[in-house]
């Protein structure tokens, strides 16, 4: 089938403003949007820049706005979206070129919530024990691939770029509710600030946007409750 793409292009070396370009490519209906972008790059216009790697929704490189929604280009089949397929970079990050955005602020916020297991006791000889029930408690948030789709779909983040954002809170949740972690208090302190969890207005865009099906708003709600209760 013939597929029509409209891509928001931006080259900081030659232009001050982004502009739209149209492309037609021949594709199978079951091809991914990413296949279309690769075909455009390989056959039509080698100057198109985007990040991509695993091409099946695990590495988190290719989050972008597809027909106005944050999606991974490798997880959307062309037969399932309306044409022309509009492609834009994620909103709220500085655009560096075409679909490539500056992720450095995003990762700085990720780092701010101490995204690692805090251990204050000695390691045992074998594994620490954890019941399947305790393991299940934080399963949902272990799935996060740091693609940025949730944070850049969040109106609270758009209006306040200092907001730590849903992705960082999801990462914090993964540790706060892990029975093995001993850094909860400090982590909750980081999130119990003006630009922490309280910026979330439960708009649910993040849940819609998450390509891993994480219930982001619920996770944020659980962190809010933990702060309110002062414990987990």
């Amino acid at each position: 089938m013939q597929v029509h793409f409209k891509i928001l292009r931006f080259d900081p070396e030659t232009a001050a403003e982004p502009h739209w370009e149209s492309y037609e490519v021949e594709m199978e209906p079951t091809d991914r949007v990413l296949d279309g972008l690769e075909a455009i790059k390989g056959l039509r216009d080698g100057t198109l820049s985007l990040r991509r790697s695993c091409a099946h929704g695990i590495c988190g490189s290719d989050a972008m706005l597809i027909n106005g929604q944050n999606r991974l280009a490798c997880k959307v089949l062309v037969k399932n979206v309306k044409q022309p397929i509009t492609i834009e970079p994620m909103r709220g990050f500085k655009v560096l070129k075409d679909l490539v955005v500056d992720m450095s602020g995003f990762f700085a916020k990720y780092r701010s919530i101490m995204p690692y297991l805090v251990e204050n006791s000695e390691r045992p000889d074998k594994e620490r024990l954890q019941s399947p029930h305790d393991r299940e408690r934080f399963d949902d948030t272990t799935k996060c691939i740091l693609c940025g789709a949730c944070t850049t779909s969040c109106p609270s983040f758009w209006s306040n770029p200092d907001y730590v954002g849903p992705a960082a809170i999801v990462q914090a949740h993964r540790f706060i509710f892990d029975s093995r972690d001993q850094g909860k208090e400090e982590r909750l302190k980081v999130l119990n600030t003006q630009d922490g969890v309280w910026r979330c207005r439960t708009i649910f865009n993040c849940v819609e946007a998450c390509p891993r099906g994480i219930n982001v708003t619920r996770a944020i709600g659980e962190v809010k409750k933990a702060i309110a209760r002062g414990k987990t």
């Binding site: 690692y116 390691r123 594994e127 024990l129 393991r135 892990d178 972690d181």
Partner: peptide
């Protein structure tokens, strides 16, 4: 090394008795 990964926080699936 698997024990070390667990100590680093790797969320392995668990058996009913809590082991990996």
């Amino acid at each position: 090394t698997v024990y070390e990964l667990e100590h680093m926080g790797l969320p392995f699936s668990r058996n009913p008795n809590g082991t990996i």
